[in-house]
Amino acid sequence: MTATTQQTAVRTGALVRALIYALLLLFAVYYLLPLYVMVVNSLKPLEEIRQGNMLALPRTWTIEPWLSAWSTAQIGVQPTGLKPYFLNSIQMVVPAVFTSTLLGALNGYVLTKWRFRGADFVFTLMLLSCFIPFQIVLIPSARILGLLGLGGTVTGLVLIHAIYGLGFTTLFFRNYYEAFPSELVRAAMIDGAGFFQIFRRILLPSSGPIIVVTVIWQFTNIWNDFLFGSSFSNADSQPMTVALNNLVNSSTGVKEYNVHFAGAILAALPTLVVYIVSGRYFVRGLMAGAVKG
């Protein structure tokens, strides 16, 4: 491995090493601090936050803020807690991720193994669509969702997320299948396998890693989205991020910081779990998304 030999190549003294460790730990604290603050204060009564120290551990432990954030807190005008919106997000994320990943895989397959005149042009247009600021499509999207009768529905959000995810999923699979040996496809053709048989029997079984990367990427992006959610949903169809923002920034009543923190952790939990369970693939997706082409 280059990684290990690279490391041994650069030598440093003991004092310098101590300093390096100190710096690295300091930054670990910096990155962990907000998470710590959220967790600790979500377990305190409100009074203790107001008067006490935000960095201190709770004197009185309570899970009341979590229960409140989940099922009774005021979101907009309804005291529903975040639960219905959590479900909205799940109903939005699952079909959108599934559709965009499946289509991305098929697109990548066609663009690499069944190339036709103009395939590069098609791919370039799909690639460029990854980079547009979504503000530019907000107005027409709102119109078309309205025309389709999908304005303010979770289905409408599924459609929007599936469509605007296609560029990335196609890019991921296209780059992965580009390295997949074409001779295998040719061998399968001689064996008499058709278009879908080759995809299902030859390419899909070898696509595990890229499917994981794509699903994680899409899941994270769609779950964390705020722009589309806030633009195209109504009070009943809001996804989690929009509901959380409403919870925190509603101007009425007392600011229940502990509930806000609990809600924020609830909103972060699914993506955090994905990150902890499969961080390697998460990073790979970020890199693939960052270093395109």
């Binding site: 907000p34 998470l35 964390n224 910081y257 909103a267 902890i276 998460f282 990073v283």
Partner: peptide
């Protein structure tokens, strides 16, 4: 250390915003 440095990227900007807003 590496996953600790990287985990904020998995969070929604809204969650990050709430944490820092109150902090």
């Amino acid at each position: 250390l590496r996953p600790i440095y990287l985990y904020p990227m998995a969070l929604s900007f809204i969650v990050t915003g709430v944490a820092w807003k109150w902090f």
